[in-house]
Write a protein that binds this DNA or RNA. Structure first.
Lengths: 230, 230
DNA sequence: CGACGATTTGAATAGGATCAATGGGAGTGG
DNA sequence: CCACTCCCATTGATCCTATTCAAATCGTCG
């Protein structure tokens, strides 16, 4: 484990205030690996042997049932994923695959559990991190239960617009196929949802989306802080 | 706070191994209250001032958006709810209402946060509890994303059947109206879903449901451990 | 250039929602 | 105790959303 990698780990709030020796202990047996695109890192129900940290690239967490597959969430750097499973020590709840070539740090889950037992501060940080994860799924759950496909897309676009700096245009961070799955629809339906938003000033050009009537779009989307953030 | 109430709290794994003095400290300012049915305890976006413990009765957590309302989950005794919000100290993510007359213990959220800072063991237990909550929402999210309404109902029935002791008959623990909302459908659609399951040996008699062809029902439901539990 | 996958568009279908009407209990008040 | 009311549950008819199947177009990469 090189110093530079340790600094990356420390940049995460989960590890930011961890004592040096505990952080060193966590990183024993960890390894950084580069995966090409479209590699399955693990599958749901595999024993959760590692906590993952995405250093760069992009990862999709997805799930299968009844011959159907759905994107649960997307991970972008720098962030941990499958923290809950690693902390509890049971099986992964979702599968993961790289969407692009990605550098990923893998930390033995046992190290994480040991740290939780030993390091009070880390346990507290874990509580906050897990609460944030929980919050995120609850939002996604509300969104799919209470909104139509077009509303979900409209709100997704508005959230991205805010995150990307309110420039009147955004770049979709993933393939539309994946975006469709994340929003709980088929690719065909996403195309049609974009078409439905055209009268609301949404102009799609490849991976770029331009907004010409933000007020109209907001009126349609009816964003809620409890789902879409502040 | 009477001794008997303290014992109830201690019966929860979250508090089971907490030192006596810390438990006493948590319960300062807590109060036990009986609410009639259909009382809203709090609404999403209210500041999370309390951790709730349902002693008896039944509580529904629900959410609103766009004039629609949906049941997020049901709480049955004895269990805490809104732990994540209480631990983090921001707003509730869901609203809550009693479905029956219910006894509820309300613990000031600040006490919970103080305990997390002070009591390493409690922080660890909180991690496990939050991970379990997270797991639960992920299951619900998978279910609604990957299954049809009939499949969700079939799997719900099988889970209840297991929980109620595999007797070939179950009693629905909630009104069908609420069950429908929890499964992400309209009451009318739940009726039709039950009708669809009739050829699979599902016989509804009021709040009782009898199973006459469990194998057929399982074949239809295709239950998965990662969604429906072991 | 050629092949492959992603995206879009069209047509038909299926799954749920909505609207409307009826029946069935539970609780209330006379 | 009974009539009345209200809400839940069921059923039918219809509408709307989203999926499926099919085909055409576009882009990218080898």
């Amino acid at each position: 484990m090189r110093e530079s990698q340790k600094e990356i780990v420390r940049s995460l709030s989960l590890f930011s205030s961890m004592m040096e020796e505990n952080l060193d202990a966590i990183l024993v047996g960890s390894f950084l690996q580069r995966f090409p695109a479209s590699v399955v890192l693990f599958s749901e129900s595999d024993p959760a042997d590692f906590l993952y940290i995405l250093i760069n690239g992009q990862v999709e967490l997805f799930a299968n049932a009844n011959n159907r597959e759905g994107t649960m969430t997307l991970i972008r750097p720098i962030a941990t994923f499958v923290l809950a499973s690693a902390l509890v020590g049971d099986a992964y709840q979702m599968s993961a695959r790289t969407l692009e070539s990605s550098q990923i740090l893998m930390i033995p889950a046992e190290n994480i559990r040991a740290a939780m037992r030993k390091d009070k501060n880390f346990a507290q940080k874990s509580v906050l991190e897990l609460a944030a994860c929980y919050h995120g799924v609850v939002r996604a759950y509300k969104s799919i239960k209470l909104r139509t496909a077009v509303e979900r897309l409209a709100n997704y676009l508005l959230v991205q617009h805010r995150r990307q700096g309110e420039k009147g245009v955004i770049t979709l961070p993933v393939e539309k196929r994946i975006l469709a799955s994340m929003l709980g629809m088929r690719p065909e339906n996403l195309s049609r949802a974009f078409a439905t938003l055209k009268p609301y000033g949404v102009a799609v050009e490849g991976t770029d989306v331009r907004f010409q009537k933000l007020n109209d779009l907001q009126t349609l989307a009816k964003p809620l802080e409890s789902i879409d953030g502040p």
